[in-house]
Design a protein around this nucleic acid. Structure first.
Length: 876
RNA sequence: GGGCGCGUAGCUCAGCGGGAGAGCACUUCCUUGACAUGGAAGGGGUCACAGGUUCAAUCCCUGUCGCGCCCACCA
């Protein structure tokens, strides 16, 4: 016998172990391949609710496809997360009073690997708790040997194809982490700053001054020009002359450039080509000098007057403003709201800085990636994300892929004595190439930088399948079928996988991309550690069970809206698990055991024919929802059937049939067991633990659910229109009786029931209502043998048998309920029209005939309402 | 400055061209045997607002208001 309640903890541990030993994640069978690439979580990560959502959705689909007998591969793994991981270990060192610089590069990397071995796998274990079922035996890490090999090959090929190159240009420099970062890793943070208006003297024009506005006075030391708009009448004549930068005694050419907007500031703008992306372009156009004034810490370097050298950037600002003040050239200072570029990892303000870095020619790689979505080889769900994707790819900038870190894939480039670059997969090959180039052996120095983490993740869909080897997995599982991820990494990851996949595999990496919502906190804020508003899925699992969490996340996943997770919701769905558990318990107590070879098409009783038909419809609905990635629809569909149809109606209808015994009971037992089984199967993708446990306990099927069952598919054949009509009628009838609570009905019916019963246990009048409900069910169940005609029905309730002329009462109940409803609707309409006619705006703006029409409608409704009232009175 | 999305019951949210829904909360009742993590009944909604299209609009179109997010080099 099953326990009285479902105990998730015990079940989850046990079933997890069963699944692991059965290796349910391994691709099995000869079905069509179905492949899903797990977005590799950072090794530094710990399970947050976003992972929980992401992996639940994938697991739902993957389990569903396995039940459909596809050959499913769900490829798991973790990402080495360059900066994040290095930061963790550096923080550990800092706690010991050391820094990365106290170690050699190799020692430091050794230390990170050690950290990974000890605590890098936490997230994988946590995913286990959720019941996720990827093929753990194929788990990969972006820095493991095979994937690193793929990274080197890709880098070398792209370099030789001219799609990777080294360039000196402005990068986003993080002065705290001492590395370049890509545009995507820069966040614009709002900042309340000041705008300083400064007067510049003009060389040879003692009477003129030029006012220039800036938010960053400290960069003045690197100014090499002032730009004005060539169309700007105020300054046109100054073009070609020079402004005087008094601080350093430098002459700044005044150039005419479109970049200067006459509407903004004073219309004249200072040009600092080495520290501003726009100014850099201006300098290119006008051949201006570039003066770099910062070192890697964003402290002033030797290119500035000695008194400023070594100053931190904000200290320098103060010092410079003080001097300007003294010079009396500050025209005015305005408060100024703007945004500051901020490093997403370090949180410090990013400095545009002139360095040599490696770049990917993203614009070229983007073209096929755009085309593939345009022609539908890859589809986004929901489709509106395609717009975001296109927008970004069509305006894509070169991708800066080098990072001045130690943890990551070291760039396979070597420099000769004269700085000639040799890009090869190994040092040996580089040396050979150098020998060929120079004609003799030379010493090479390897590039110190590592690659952006996203470079290796971009290869994930084929590198994990064994590329560059032509493995059977690669042939069979690429392109993959589905990628499930959230919108915030469409650019970081999805777009780049598209580019790399198309370039190296000549096909899209995935046919569908499902973009799910972000899980937010109760205020709709993105959850983050710094805000301290994180809901820990492990705590939820502990409290309500993994199934309840999974079901909640699935039920809340509708398109186009973020998820605000509440614990109450999880609690509600935990109750659903309990409900189902108890339904199973009921089946067990009533000896409703699965009958081998049971044919749902063969049942005879109307109630059973109805139930199997409803189940078939539900199965179709759920499958359709899952096929189209409408997760909430799938979850709620099965919920509704299991609780609303099966528990609330079917089990109640059939209680008397079971009690009566005979052939009807035999058929009903078999049907009940079968229905419960089908519910378990339909629910399995969302609630794997509960369903697996019940499946195991309710029958001996010789193995776990995925191995020994199939997804229920019945088509329309099981739907018996006559049975459906009959039982639906009963359901409506009973509902109508229930909802008719007027004294007349209760008092009209109850005495009839009680006349011959005299049951001493019924004491209070309020009991009557419960009795009616019960009776109605007994009645209908008994009536199932013969078509309910609305005539006198036999009522059996325990030992008491009452014959009563229910028909009149029932008809009355139904009719009055209908009329009441109709009346309510009509009165609502009248109200609505009255409000409309009372609305000044409407009366003022609507044409005469529209108003007349409304008046007419009102009269019609009023007349109809009167009729209904009359009918109700007659009934009474 | 562009783009996307959202405003449906007290709260969190599904839904959608023809009967306004779920979970939780609330009110009343129910220890009869699957389940009080339950059962039954009920209250509560001009589906943000205003126009338009339609026989019919919460749903489609336009505008307004409010909210959120993404992208963007404006001193």
């Amino acid at each position: 016998m099953l326990d009285k309640t479902f105990d998730p903890k015990a079940v989850e541990t046990r079933q997890s172990e069963r699944w692991d030993s059965a290796e349910i994640g391994k691709p099995a069978g000869n079905g069509a391949p179905f492949t899903v690439m797990m977005p590799p979580p950072n090794v530094t990560g710990s399970l947050h609710v976003g992972h929980a959502l992401n992996h639940t959705l994938q697991d739902v689909i993957v389990r569903y496809r396995r039940m459909k007998k596809d050959r499913v591969l769900w490829q798991p793994g973790t990402d080495h997360a360059g900066i994040a991981t290095q930061m963790i270990v550096e923080r550990q060192l800092a706690a010991e009073g050391k820094s990365r610089r106290d170690f050699t590069r190799d020692e430091f990397i050794e230390r990170i690997w050690k950290w990974k071995a000890e605590s890098g796998g936490a997230i994988v274990n946590q995913l286990h708790r959720l019941g996720t079922s990827p093929d753990w035996s194929r788990e990969r890490f972006t820095m493991d040997e095979g994937l690193s090999d793929a990274v080197r090959k890709v880098f070398v090929r792209l370099y030789k194809q001219g799609l990777i190159y080294r360039d000196k240009r402005l990068v986003n420099w993080d002065p705290k982490l001492h590395t370049a970062i890509s545009d995507l890793e820069v966040e614009a943070k709002p900042h309340k700053g000041s705008l300083w208006h400064l007067r510049y003297a003009i060389a040879g024009e003692p009477d003129r001054v030029l006012v220039v506005a800036t938010t960053r006075p400290e960069t003045m030391l690197g100014d090499t020009a002032v730009a004005v708009n060539p169309e700007d009448e105020r300054y046109k004549d100054l073009i070609g002359k020079h402004a005087i930068l008094q601080l350093v005694g430098r002459l700044l050419p005044i150039v005419g450039d479109e970049h200067a907007d006459p509407e903004t500031g004073s219309g004249a703008v200072k040009i600092t080509p080495a520290h501003d992306f726009n100014d850099f372009e201006v300098a290119r156009r006008h051949g201006l000098e570039l003066i770099n004034v910062f070192d890697s810490n964003a402290h002033l370097n030797d290119n500035v007057p000695e008194r400023f050298q070594g100053m931190e950037r904000y200290a320098a600002r103060k010092a410079i403003l003080a001097e300007l003040e003294e010079l009396g050239v500050i025209e005015k200072v305005e408060p100024h709201d703007h945004t500051l570029p901020t490093g997403d990892r370090s949180g410090v303000t990013i400095e545009p800085w002139l360095t040599d870095q490696w770049y990917v020619d993203a614009a070229t790689l983007a073209k096929p990636a755009i085309a593939a979505v345009e022609d539908g080889r890859t589809r986004f769900v929901p489709v509106q994300w395609e717009k975001t994707y296109f927008e970004w790819l069509r305006n894509i900038q070169p991708w800066c892929i080098s990072r001045q870190l130690w943890w990551g894939h070291r760039i396979p480039a070597w420099y000769g004595p004269d700085q000639t670059i040799f890009v090869e997969e190994t040092e040996t090959e580089a040396l050979a190439a150098a020998k060929a180039h120079y004609g003799h052996d030379v010493e090479l120095v390897r590039d110190n930088d590592v690659l952006d983490t996203w470079f290796s993740s971009a290869l994930w869909p084929f590198s994990t399948l064994g590329w560059p080897e032509q493995t059977p997995e690669l042939t069979q599982h690429y392109p993959t079928d589905l990628l499930v991820t959230s919108f915030d990494i469409i650019f970081f990851w999805v777009a780049r996988m598209m580019m790399m996949g198309l370039h190296f595999m000549d096909d899209v990496p995935f046919k569908r991309v499902y973009i799910h919502a972000l899980v937010r906190d109760e205020h709709g804020q993105k959850m983050s550690k710094t805000k301290g508003n994180v809901i820990d899925p492990l705590v939820i699992i502990e409290k309500f069970g993994a199934d309840a969490l999974r079901f909640t996340l699935t039920a809340l996943t509708a398109q186009g809206r973020d998820i605000r997770l509440s614990e109450q919701r999880v609690e509600g769905y935990r109750n659903f698990a309990t409900k189902l558990w108890n339904a199973a318990r009921f089946c067990q107590m009533n000896e409703c055991h699965p009958v081998p070879g049971f044919d749902p098409g063969s049942v005879k009783l109307a109630v059973n024919r109805w139930a199997v038909g409803e189940l078939a419809l539900t199965a179709g609905k759920v499958a359709d929802a899952l096929d189209n990635l409408r997760f909430s629809e799938a979850a709620l569909g099965i919920y509704q059937f299991a609780w609303g149809t099966f528990c609330d109606w079917y089990l109640e209808f059939t209680k008397p049939l079971l009690a009566a015994g005979g052939e009807g009971a035999v058929e009903t037992r078999a049907t009940t067991a079968w229905l419960l089984d089908q519910i378990l199967l339909l629910l399995h993708p969302t609630m794997p633990f509960l369903t697996e446990e019940l499946y195991e306990k309710l029958g001996d099927r010789g193995g776990h659910l995925l191995a020994t069952s199939e997804w229920p598919e019945f088509g329309e054949a099981l739907v018996d229109a006559a049975a459906k009509e009959e039982i639906d009628w009963l359901v409506r009838l009973i509902s109508a009786i229930r909802s008719t609570k007027s004294d007349i009905n209760v008092s009209a019916v109850v005495p009839l029931i009680l006349k011959d019963a005299g049951d001493a246990s019924i004491r209070r009048l309020n009991d009557y209502r419960g009795l009616i409900e019960r009776m109605a069910r007994v009645d209908t169940a008994n009536a199932l043998g013969e078509a309910p005609t609305g005539g006198a029905a036999r009522i059996a309730l325990d030992e008491m048998t009452v014959v009563l002329p229910l028909a009149g009462a029932i008809d009355f109940a139904v009719e009055s309920a209908r009329l009441n409803k109709e009346l309510k609707r009509l009165e609502g309409e009248i109200d609505r029209i009255d409000k409309k006619l009372g609305n000044e705006q409407f009366v003022a703006r609507a044409p005469e005939e529209v108003i007349a029409e409304q008046r007419e409608k009102r009269a019609e409704y009023a007349a109809a309402a009167d009729k209904v009232r009359g009918a109700l009175e007659m009934l009474a």
